[in-house]
Every structure is written in structure tokens, then in C-alpha cells.
């Protein structure tokens, strides 16, 4: 029992090391010194206040999408649609910020945050409804809804709220009173209020799933849908609820990006946060605390590898992506690790 518990902790660490090792070997093959590559990685992620801020900036959306995948997963659903949900949420926040520019209430940011959540929740609801009531598989639903979200938000950006002042594919700026406060006021102030919102949402997710009756019903549905149904839980409702919450939490990425960072909806702002959320959730073992930690790792990795591009001669932007992907791959190849660990017997 004890050994098993240790293995559960060791396994991801081992995986990270393995991925790093392979990546460093490739760097070595390209003529880089592995030791200095490693140093650049760590310094790039945590070396200065500015670097740390950047790391946390990338971490924040990943916490949201990771939690989104986790909530759905606890209900037995595989949410591939966090990407579409976050676009929907972000665009909802933008819309509110633009349309209600005259609203002077101090509650304005709060309203915009709610809009993010509701936008994402709506997108999640579609997937949940189709799954629960029509029986179509959530993986297909959510993938298709991703395409629709990309299409609709792009169209709205370019034709309904375009920023006429630039050539960039982006909307007008939202009114200033909707913005959430920034922290770490360095030159490129990056981390903002949304990071703390993400931590709060992680705690709330944990509390909801493990301390409330509704959360229990949701998890029971995920563990054994037949047993849940026979014990009187309305599993259809639970599935819809899970997808609504998952979508809503993914939609909160809009708080980080629109209300915190850019102040406008830029087409293609998300470097696939939604899909990375799947890996974040898996690595975090589908638990909120694990999600926060693994999002931090992914954020650090993202920032660190960006520096590899800048500070080394032979590792280009593309290769740094390979580096990142290698670590993610080795981490998520869970079956491989249990296989290797069990082979010893």
C-alpha cells in the first residue's frame, strides 16, 4: 500500500525527468550543451519576477481548462471541447465589454466574469445535452463544437466588432471598467487577478465535487452510471450539469485573456489551451490540486522553451515545441510507466 502511494507521486516526476532527458539528448545531438539548455529552461521559467509572471500567465488558462476537463472526467465524460468553450466564454466577455461600455457600476468586472462563465457554460451545455438526451458521444460533439466556436467567434470578430484601427484580426477594445486588475507591474505586466481566480475556482471545484451532495452524485455517475441510475440519481441531469460546469470553467479563460491581458478578442489568442487542459488534467490525476500543480509545470515549460528559441543557436521555435511535446508525451504515457514499474516483478 505504502509503496503504491509513493509510486503514484514518483511516476509523474519520473516521467518529467524522462521527457527532459530525451529532450536534452536531442539538444546535445544538435550541438548544444545539455547543462546550459537545462539552465535556460529553468531560468526562463523562474529566473526573474518577470519570468515568473510570464510563467503564471501561461499557467492561469491551463488551470481553468485543466479543471474543466477534470470536472467532466469525474462525471465520466471526456471533454475535448474546452477549446471551443473558452473561445465562447472569452467572446461573451468581450461582447459584454463592448456593448455595455456605458455601464459605470463597480460591479462591471464581476458582470464580465459571469459572462465568461455563462458563455463557456452554454457551449458545454450543447455538448452535455446532446450526450445525455440524444446519446451522441461527447468526444464527437465537443470536437465539432470546437470548429463551430472557432468559426462563429472569427466571423463575429471580423464582421460585427472589428477593430477598424488596425489590420490585426481582433475586436474593438472593451470598456476599461470591465478590466480586472493586473499584478506584478513590471514593464510587460502580465499576471493578473485571474490567477487568483483560478486558484479560487480550483478550491471551489474540490469542495463541490467532494463535499456536496450534488458533486457526489456527479462523481457517482462518472464511476458507475448503472449503479448511479439504479440508486435514483438522474444521470442525464448529472451529465448535462457536468458539461455546463466544465464549459463555464473553461470559459473563465476569457477573464485571463480578455479582462486581464488583451482587453480585446484576438483571433487565435489561445495556443490550444483547451487541448493542453486534457494533458494537464491527466497529469494532475483529475484532482484539482494536481491540476494546479501540473498547470504550473506546463506553464513553466511553455515559458522555458520559449527562451530556448531566443537564447540558443540551434534550437528554433519549432524545436522548442518538440521539446515541450516530448515531456508532455512521456508524462501522459501513463500505461508505459505502470508497465515499466510492474515489469520488475
Amino acid at each position: 500500500m505504502f509503496i503504491k502511494k509513493i509510486l503514484i507521486i514518483i511516476q509523474p516526476v519520473l516521467a518529467i525527468c524522462m521527457g527532459l532527458f530525451i529532450g536534452l539528448m536531442i539538444a546535445y545531438g544538435l550541438g548544444e550543451n545539455p547543462w546550459s539548455v537545462l539552465k535556460i529552461l529553468v531560468n526562463g521559467a523562474f529566473g526573474s519576477t518577470h519570468d515568473l509572471a510570464s510563467t503564471l500567465f501561461y499557467t492561469t488558462p491551463l488551470i481553468f481548462t485543466g479543471l474543466s476537463v477534470t470536472i467532466a472526467f469525474q462525471c465520466g465524460l471526456f471533454n475535448i471541447g474546452a477549446e471551443g468553450q473558452l473561445l465562447s466564454g472569452a467572446f461573451a466577455a468581450t461582447t459584454v465589454g463592448i456593448l455595455f461600455a456605458n455601464l459605470g457600476s463597480p460591479l462591471a468586472p464581476f458582470i464580465a466574469i459571469c459572462a465568461s462563465f455563462i458563455g463557456g457554460a452554454l457551449w458545454g451545455f450543447f455538448a452535455g445535452y446532446l450526450k445525455a438526451k440524444r446519446g451522441s458521444h461527447e468526444v464527437i460533439n465537443t470536437i465539432m463544437l470546437n470548429f463551430i466556436a472557432v468559426g462563429i467567434t472569427s466571423w463575429l470578430t471580423l464582421y460585427v466588432f472589428p477593430n477598424r484601427g488596425t489590420q490585426n484580426p481582433e475586436t474593438q477594445e472593451i470598456a476599461a471598467q470591465f478590466r480586472v486588475p493586473s499584478l506584478f507591474l513590471t514593464e510587460h505586466a502580465t499576471v493578473n487577478f485571474s490567477f487568483f481566480l483560478a486558484l479560487l475556482v480550483a478550491v471551489l471545484t474540490w469542495f463541490f465535487l467532494w463535499k456536496t451532495v450534488l458533486g457526489y452524485k456527479l462523481r457517482a455517475t462518472g464511476q458507475n452510471i448503472t449503479a448511479a441510475r439504479l440508486s435514483g440519481i438522474s444521470v442525464n441531469q448529472m451529465q448535462i450539469l457536468a458539461m455546463v460546469l466544465a464549459g463555464g470553467v473553461a470559459g473563465l479563460v476569457g477573464v485571463a485573456e480578455i479582462l486581464g491581458q488583451a482587453g480585446k478578442f484576438r483571433i487565435g489568442f489561445s495556443p490550444e489551451y483547451g487541448f493542453m487542459g486534457i494533458a494537464v488534467s491527466l497529469l494532475g490525476r483529475n484532482k484539482p490540486l494536481g491540476v494546479v500543480l501540473s498547470a504550473l509545470l506546463f506553464g513553466a515549460l511553455h515559458k522555458g522553451t520559449m527562451n530556448l528559441d531566443l537564447e540558443t543557436e540551434n534550437i528554433t521555435r519549432d524545436l522548442s515545441l518538440v521539446f515541450e511535446a516530448l515531456i508532455i508525451l512521456s508524462v501522459t504515457a501513463e500505461g508505459l510507466w505502470s508497465y515499466i514499474l510492474e515489469r520488475r516483478k
Binding site: 457526489y216 462523481r219 457517482a220 448503472t226 449503479a227 448511479a228 440508486s231 435514483g232 440519481i233
Partner: peptide
């Protein structure tokens, strides 16, 4: 196993099923 238990959950959560309200 297929219809009554949450196999990967603790006994208390299994006991709770159906009694959760």
C-alpha cells in the same frame, strides 16, 4: 460490480450511494 458498486471509491462513498439525500 456492474450495477451496485463504485469499485474505485471508498466504502463510505459506496454506502452513501442511494442514501446520499
Amino acid at each position: 460490480q456492474a450495477q451496485a458498486l463504485l469499485l474505485d471509491s471508498a466504502l463510505q462513498e459506496n454506502f452513501l450511494l442511494g442514501n446520499h439525500d
